[in-house]
Amino acid sequence: MNFENQGVIKRLADQYGPENLAVVLGNGETSGVEVFAETVTEGDPSYAGPLAGVALKIPVYHVLEPEVTESVPENLRQEKLELSSLVIDVEPMRQVLQASREKLSTARL
């Protein structure tokens, strides 16, 4: 994740509290998703950006996961997401993100 966006997320976490935030991604491929999820939960894995060593523990979703799409009105879902759902294979991303979210919820218990 680029450093500028890391900086914005850090600022928003300060402003709203990380527990009140969720990140929703639109990545096309799984490889990018892992890094994004790690960055906003455990901190920047490259140890170079503003989130280096900052574990915000913000839950991360992909826009095509059912947890997200079920909240999107039918007309918007058809118009904006139908094609992407044919193009993007969300299943491997879902596995990564579910694991990441489960880790967060157990950590909180």
Binding site: G28, E29, S31, G32, E34, V35, L83, L86, V87
Partner: peptide, 14 residues
């Protein structure tokens, strides 16, 4: 992690 850009574009057209 930036993916295969042409492949994504071709899948979009398909």
């Amino acid at each position: 992690g930036s993916g295969d850009v042409p492949r994504t574009n071709y899948r979009t057209l398909a």
